[in-house]
Write a protein that binds this DNA or RNA. Structure first.
Lengths: 208, 208
DNA sequence: GTCTATAACGTGATAGAC
DNA sequence: GTCTATCACGTTATAGAC
């Protein structure tokens, strides 16, 4: 018997509803600008229930922050440590998968960067990002590929540049839309084009 | 007659002291996380005095937001519209001047980007950034220089990439310091090295 | 588990003396 | 102009009925 659902959340439990709402609001507005009332309303439940499940705004935020960082760095770790693909292929895959990820969730980068800066938390420190990135297969391949260049680019500089080209446009989205006079749809189309451009540019940089 | 000064602000007027304090705190924490009490304390004055001079937190913020945007885009506008320099020189100058600017005030980019995203204000709209950038001498020179390339890079894509390479490292500073295990001093040194790397990379990209 | 009502607290803003 | 004291309000968190 089909049941009409005004809200697709009706079939999941309350805890999950609150988590999904918290994710949405925190990502969009950041910790300080978020009110627990907004989250409760977004979840379609009462404010008291939020504290019943998660004790406090801070504890709820920590959960969202942790899962967001995990989700964000997991893709990177998987691609970077694939021993079966070439360096060039890795650049293509990481570009494409991150642009797809950010087209779906464009608020993630600035959320993470802003909270890491303004909202002191030990969660950031737990991540062994140094291990994930600086000791990855990707890095060894990159050093191998460039070891005969006359001016070898420092690995960290290269890594930062790749991530800059992929992520910064999403961070600067409001300004880019103003400068280029773009609607959201046109912005997204431009980011899809970037999937092809970035690997090409990276090749050019590596040969320089 | 020399006067001892525990605080270099003692010799400037109260309004200027409040503005300087507001700039510091807003840039560091953003609008929502800033309390007017913090600004008053930083300025070494009483909370009531802040409202006496600026009426409200919002009005004070608008002043800081406006001057910050002006300062940030002014450099760009000047460099981009210099008719006496070549395209390559412009890339060098804009890279160097912006990296110097951000070494002195590293919080500016993420402050601007985060506030433009989360804090609806009409100030952002006042800036004719489209005029400044898309109709600049820089852009005309760039189109001229690349018109014979087989795959001409769209101007906006190019512009975004240049700005990404310069600004994103400052936005991602906390993560970069974690990944690379760097102290602030080492991070700054790396950014100084980037002044030479970025123009070289941009040349490589233009030839691709 | 879920709600209503309210306590407890923090923050922006003002009144009024000096 | 500058301060102390306080108001007014919004927000987090809890008590207690159901």
């Amino acid at each position: 018997m089909a049941v009409k659902k005004a809200d697709r959340n009706l079939d999941i439990n309350t805890e999950a509803k609150i988590l999904e709402a918290a994710r949405t609001i925190f990502h969009k507005k950041g910790y300080a600008a978020t009110r627990t009332r907004d989250i409760a309303e977004e979840a379609g439940i009462n404010l008291a229930l939020l504290n019943y499940y998660f004790r406090s705004k801070e504890k709820l935020f920590d959960i969202i922050m942790l899962e967001t960082m995990e989700g964000f760095f997991q893709s990177l770790s998987v691609v970077f440590n694939d021993t079966s693909t070439s360096l060039e292929k890795k650049v293509e895959v990481v570009t494409e998968s991150y642009i797809d990820l950010l087209l779906a969730q464009p608020d993630i980068p600035i959320f993470l960067l802003n909270e890491l800066r303004t909202h002191p938390s030990e969660i950031g420190e737990k991540f062994k990002m140094k291990q994930i990135i600086m000791h990855s297969v990707f890095f060894k391949q990159w050093q191998e590929a460039t070891k005969n260049n006359k001016n070898q680019i420092p690995p960290l500089q290269f890594m930062i540049s790749l991530m800059s080209l992929i992520m910064f446009p999403f961070v600067a989205c409001p300004i880019i839309k103003m400068v280029g006079d773009l609607k959201q749809e046109q912005f997204n189309k431009m980011m899809v084009e970037r999937k092809k451009l970035i690997p090409k540019w990276i090749k050019a940089i590596m040969k320089s």
